[in-house]
Design a protein around this nucleic acid. Structure first.
Lengths: 339, 339
DNA sequence: CAAACATGCTAAAGCGTTTAAGCATTTCTG
DNA sequence: CAGAAATGCTTAAACGCTTTAGCATGTTTG
């Protein structure tokens, strides 16, 4: 453990060449016709002295790092945190490591992070693209770098991506509320042109059309501080008096619930897009559109690793279904048991 | 953007040596007496062609990566996630990048991750040590690698670390419950010898002594699945009938609240160690011992960067105070407004 | 006006690997 | 039994940068 041991030390100690050691360590003993005896001798010795190659040198030489860069909107959002953990585990078992960073949905930060990963020569990229990163993503594609987007995609860009059926998810949520007898179903969403937000809006509108209702839409700013959002939302509730609210993300739902709690407002029926561990703990428990986290992570890692192995040809695009998990908050008879 | 441009390309294009370019790019122009004219010419050209040095090659040569490895218990726990984000931001502004991984408190995973970081030659380590990593940590220390532990430390190991006053935090929580008139104050904790858990237990016991109460302690297994924990906890509640419960971590509190909700049990007074964004959303809102996340992150990064700059001599150990945030769940008159 | 120093730059070694090319032997062929 | 082929290994270049040592000039000095 004292001094870092090198491949050349091994070679010297064993009286053979560095090349031979390298071949053996990289499982090329057969291919390069190294005798079994020597192979074993080297392996045993390496084991004994605990030699670990310098990964930096390896990467410099081979151009491969066995690292995947994960660019995520916000690691403190449980939806993303859980996907990150699953991806990490899956990649790990296939010999890859993950490094991840949050963009906070800020284009400049996203661009910088992707550049950072590029500087570090990661082998592949998994990205939740924030608005304004089109050029950066395109440049990755031009450089033929393995890449897969998720949660949303960039319209008009023919990329690999894994998304869920946001139109359907939002439709189901809204239709469910309508079926519960709600007439004034509001949607709370973000000022955002991202595809997943656009699709959720479309799903909501489709249900509104089919049930012949009036839309009530409130948009808020992602980067406003929480209290501002809470106050905005309160004003909206008091003005519009919806009998149901569909929140387009789980943090919007949380802000909304805080508003209701803080100002002691009457409880409308509620559905959140994206589930949250604690939604089943609320009073009332919160109905949510749950995305298939496990499947998303699997697809992502498969698509990326296939690309890395050169198995993949054309862009691969996957859309997975979400599931509406019905809890108390959307059932009209129990929805008024607030506070 | 077509072909990766190298420092040698710059040198050739400008008709000067690679050395000169390197000096200029590393802010050694003055020191190495490169003329201002040439310096500017190089800088402009580099800017124009968008040259970025190969960080791998740089690291291989210099032995520095400008990366800090963050080994964390569980990135999906908001306490850790928030600290991670703060550390990331602070490190970033000082020219360092963070790569992080979760250990799930499993020693073998922790050991492997630290080794992974070592293989990647990170410049420094910030670690929440799980049990069983003493040897690995000691080996880092022996190799003189910059290191700081947090949340807990390893007894008998003279390390840098940043912790909070767990004894005091737990004492305050328990004493508060006692002052509310609770007599049967239970503590729910983990089977764990880690210092933070031990200290929280000590704080609880001290309050129990001072208020002349009986201790009621329930220990659960960290790696049991949640439903098992919930069922165990329910049995404990029904057997012991505590009038107050002090949870030693926020996820224990969440499991406990789920048990209460799921089995519709009467609500005891409740305090959680570690706050959670959603605790103020519950019915009732949940009293918590809140650790100073911002200060912890600051101290960690300062200690580590000082070490990296060689400014630090002896081990630096910091203990920060926590704050009891009193909400409805611990106030006896309102604590029975359950479900 | 030679010695000493300052100025402005460069050649080449080195970081720790991988890998293309090659070189003795030995073993197989016809 | 000579030439071809197989066997088992090695030499040396390369990956893209940093850094030590040093080389021409030009400018002071005593």
């Amino acid at each position: 453990m004292k001094k870092k041991i090198l491949i050349s030390d091994i070679a010297k100690d064993l009286g053979i060449s560095v090349t031979t050691v390298s071949f053996i360590l990289n499982d090329k003993a057969k291919e390069k016709r190294i005798s079994e005896g020597l192979t074993k001798r080297v392996l045993d010795y390496v084991q004994k002295v605990g030699y670990k190659p310098n990964e930096l040198a390896k990467s410099l030489r081979t151009g491969k790092t066995k690292i995947i860069g994960l660019v995520i909107e916000d690691i403190s959002n449980p939806f993303f945190a859980n996907i990150a953990r699953l991806i990490e585990a899956k990649a790990y078992s296939r010999g890859y490591r993950i490094i991840y960073c949050s963009t906070d949905n800020q284009p400049d930060k996203a661009i910088e992070l992707i550049q950072l990963f590029r500087d570090r020569h990661v082998d592949g990229y998994i990205v939740t693209p924030s608005e304004g990163v089109r050029d950066t993503i395109e440049s990755l594609q031009h450089s033929q770098l393995p890449l897969v987007l998720f949660d949303r995609y960039i319209p008009g860009l023919d990329s690999n991506h894994v998304i869920t059926d946001n139109v359907r998810g939002a439709y189901d949520a809204t239709a469910h509320l309508a079926q519960q007898g709600c007439r004034r179903i509001a949607m709370i969403t973000l000022y955002s042109a991202q595809t997943q937000m656009r699709d959720r809006m479309n799903g909501y509108m489709r249900a509104i059309d089919i049930y012949k209702l009036q839309p009530y839409v409130k948009k808020v700013n992602l980067h406003d501080d929480e209290q501002t959002v809470i106050d905005d939302f309160r004003a909206f509730l008091e003005d519009q008096q919806p009998d149901a609210v569909f929140f387009a993300t789980n943090y919007l739902a949380i802000a909304g619930l805080k508003a209701i709690k803080q100002y002691n407002l009457p409880f409308p029926a509620v559905v959140s897009y994206d589930d949250h561990t604690l939604f089943k703990l609320f009073t009332p428990t919160i109905t949510a559109v749950s995305q298939p986290i496990e499947a998303i992570a699997s697809e992502l890692i498969n698509i990326l690793l296939n690309q890395l192995d050169g198995k993949e040809k054309g862009p691969k695009q996957v859309m997975l279904p979400s599931e509406l998990i019905i809890r108390e908050s959307s059932l009209v008879q129990t929805s008024s048991t607030g506070s």
